[in-house]
Design a protein around this nucleic acid. Structure first.
Lengths: 235, 235
DNA sequence: CAGTGGTCTAGACCACTGG
DNA sequence: CAGTGGTCTAGACCACTGG
């Protein structure tokens, strides 16, 4: 046989997902069921499930089973540097306007994305970053106070949240998504734009050795901000 | 022992890389050597090496061995893969609708961005990419016919412009910017959205050895597309 | 409790690379 | 050829989840 068994199982599962036979959230056959169905050992069945999980098609839960993941667009690699640094590199003046920094209790959505229990403490900070006095980024951020207990005692005029966090909790991983959105009313007001104006929204989750450090939503007026990069291909 | 054996092996290897004992390109112990060194089975040693390869720290070559990978580029780097590939990886069906492919004479703006003289010939292609029949990307592209003379004779249902170009003119560099915009009327119509809907616009210029190959504007409905990525920091 | 996934073993045969 | 990684087996014990 030229196609490896684990690949055949992967193809079978991907087929079902593609055809819509198995919808997001549906349970896929257990390792033991695949063992019987494909006459393979459990290690081979596991391999198929693990690779599909790593690729984001499936989601495993010990004791529960394996499920079709919510479909997610994924592609690229992007690193966003500190906004203050970026502005200064352009030779412009940087300033910010801190709206609030406070402790809150995680609701269920926040708990899930921060990897804590519902009701656990989180620190929430909200501010607007300016370039030459013009608002260019609205930042809403959640921070895990267990990992960064002194976050809410910082002077963010000295060091931006991003800069402070990268000092005290060096990140090992980051996850980010970029989308175009219409700003909520309060965001539009803070950015001094109409809420017709399309905005670039970057959602960034950072991980350190100890777990999820922070979830940041960064909203930029489309008219005043672009993300750019240049890539050299080392071939 | 609470830390799994494969994790201990991973930590050991990461330590050597971090301390600089093992430099990029250096060969790491083979699976069989790790088996002896850590008194584990080969499957466990393999798991450690495989996970580190998947994470980009190591590079395996059958018959040769496993080596420390070159340290990862950690600048503002973004790679956009083929839209067709991306859709298919999600297990969805890909299709496209070609609006036009034609030769034009460069106006001054086009000439500047393509690095040609005003009045020189360019090929312009316009099309809409679909995922499961829903428009997700409007593509407007300029191509230099001197570098890719047969571009306007391709069947883009077989190979997307991106895929074709990366075959005939392997890129050495790419420049891109991402912004949020309101779509022009004709783009909104092609994408079947209202032109109130904020869109993600990716502008991508690609270079080969010979010069600027192509300038692409890729417009995605904010409601149907996100750019995402996950980054591991190799330190 | 039965069923799930998580870790692990001690083997096997194979394809590939260099000398 | 000996050594490497690639696929695979048929078991084992474990931690976790729900009923």
């Amino acid at each position: 046989m030229s196609i490896p068994a684990y690949q055949q199982i992967k193809n079978f599962i991907l087929d079902q997902i593609q055809k819509g036979t198995w919808l997001p959230g549906a349970q896929v056959p257990s390792e033991n069921q695949l063992v019987e169905q494909f006459s393979v050992s459990r290690m081979t069945a596991r391999r198929a499930l693990n690779e599909l999980s790593d690729q984001g098609f499936l989601k495993k839960s010990q004791g529960l089973g394996t499920f079709v993941a919510d479909s997610r667009p994924l592609s690229s690699v992007l690193v966003v540097k500190s906004i203050a640094e970026e502005v200064r590199e352009r030779g412009h003046s940087y300033s910010n306007n801190i709206i609030s920094v406070r402790r809150i209790k995680a609701d269920s959505l926040q708990a899930t994305s921060m990897g804590v229990a519902e009701g656990d403490a989180l620190i929430e900070s909200t501010m607007v970053h300016h370039e030459n006095g013009t608002p260019i980024q609205f930042e809403h951020r959640l921070v895990n106070p267990v990992l960064v207990p002194e976050y809410d005692q910082q002077d963010f005029n000295k060091l931006t949240p991003n800069e402070y966090l990268s000092q005290v909790a060096p990140l090992t991983e980051a996850e980010l998504s970029i989308e175009a959105v219409q700003p909520e009313k309060k965001v539009g007001i803070a950015l001094e734009i109409s809420n017709q104006c399309p905005c670039l929204k970057v959602t960034r989750r950072t991980f350190s050795q100890q777990g999820i450090v922070s979830l940041a939503e960064l909203i930029h007026p489309g008219s005043r901000y672009r993300l750019g990069s240049k890539i050299s291909v080392g071939k």
